[in-house]
Design a binder for these strands. Structure first.
Lengths: 235, 235
DNA sequence: CGGTGCGTTGACATTTCTCAACTGTTGTGG
DNA sequence: CCACAACAGTTGAGAAATGTCAACGCACCG
């Protein structure tokens, strides 16, 4: 409520090229909030009062279907923002949000005053347009991913778009969710995910190492993602 | 290139509450374009030079995978806009676009001058934010849809979110794509789609009438969309 | 120590895909 | 106007992928 240091915002991708005045104005509407794992930020259907930036830790956005089935929409790490669209042009949050780590540091920006500021501040509005475009691109990618009909294609597609680190013989990709959640993210069961990884290991394509994956044969992973390779016959 | 009547823009949802000056400025960057079915508007990878509004007719956005497999991303009818995100913050179009009907009337807005205008025109930027938010909500919905694991749940979910018309005993939902494309849109094969519809017909839930669907039992369709009902045992 | 929950594996049921044949429609050219 | 090709849509039979249920190991945490 009382505002934060503008410098805390400067590091965020959206505001990198924002004039000092705009940045200061936004900082005045923001407050820093530190959460513990499991702490809820907002619930689906609740009036959209603020949007957020992740400074450290992680946040999960999800919906609840009937019978408590949890549909994970996104995992967000440092630098990402969320709920801008809700605050800017929707009456209520379209999903639930909880912090995943202790501590998770967030910048919380009050919605109503931000909306007012936006109309008169072109530079800020352009920054928000860029931010929303980022979300759009991400979701479009996700749609493409989910349109793939085979489980291994979806997994391969997903993995190939994660930040990875070259590591000796292969590519190390950190899995930033529990396998259970990753499975749901990719519209498959945990069992299927486990078996796909098993097959990849047997085929020498990749090796599951607890919380990360070591890809040994990038080309074949690529082929799998595009449905060019099949992997059934070659047990 | 030479501009169009501002009144042509006023009808579009994005610009409903835009000041006269902004509207006129955009109109100056726009031109009216009439296409025939099959006419390409832009190709994937091409530099994003303009974005569009549909005035009449319809447009299809799609990607091409290897081997010419066409992945339909969206069908757009009158009032919708597309490629704003590409023009505003991406170097190239992320998909192909073609007109689907003869005639299809479009408003084409030149990208570069629009971007310049945007920075200084807060009202316009806010309008674009609203437009992008609409896209975001639509894509989020699509992600949720594709996350459903059963074919009939995806189809039910999809149908329940289409504009429909009450019609005597039931609900008439126009299918705005060929069944072949609808199937791909829902990550299933045309055969599976056909069989699901057959089962619904046998169960008295809905009746496929060529290019439209007559829903007889909305409640059960709802149940199917949420995985509450199964429809296997009750042939 | 127990408990709780994730991840793996196996056996089995079911859905969905694949391939193929057949129908009906549409549009074209004779 | 008809014959024909081309293509969407349907249906069937069999194969393959995936989901379901259950058991087990294992780590983590009280």
């Amino acid at each position: 409520m009382s505002g934060i240091e503008p410098s805390l915002l400067r590091g965020l991708p959206h505001f990198r090229s924002l004039p000092e005045a705009s940045l200061a104005a936004v900082a005045r509407l923001a407050r820093l909030r530190t959460c513990r794992a499991g702490e809820a930020l907002f619930a689906e259907g609740e009036p959209a009062r603020a949007f957020y930036f992740v400074r450290s830790g992680a946040v999960k956005l999800y919906r609840l279907g009937r019978e408590g089935r949890e549909q994970v929409l996104h995992h967000l790490g440092p630098g990402r923002s969320f709920a801008e669209a809700a605050v800017l042009s929707m009456p209520a949050y379209p999903a639930h949000a909880v912090a995943l780590e202790t501590p998770t540091e967030l910048v919380e920006v009050a919605g109503a005053p931000f909306r007012e500021r936006l109309a008169g501040d072109g530079e800020l509005a352009v920054a928000m347009v860029a931010s929303l475009s980022m979300w759009l691109a991400g979701l479009a990618d996700r749609v493409e991913e989910l349109s793939l009909t085979s489980a291994s294609a979806r997994l391969a597609h997903h993995l190939l778009r994660r930040p990875a680190r070259r590591e000796g013989e292969g590519l190390a990709i950190p899995l930033e969710m529990a396998k259970k959640e990753l499975a749901q993210h990719l519209a498959m069961t945990p069992e299927t995910l486990s078996r796909v990884l098993r097959r990849w290991q047997d085929a020498g394509i990749a090796r599951s190492q607890g919380t990360r994956l070591l890809v040994l044969d990038e080309q074949r992973l690529d082929a799998l993602a595009e449905g060019r390779e099949d992997l059934s016959g070659r047990a």
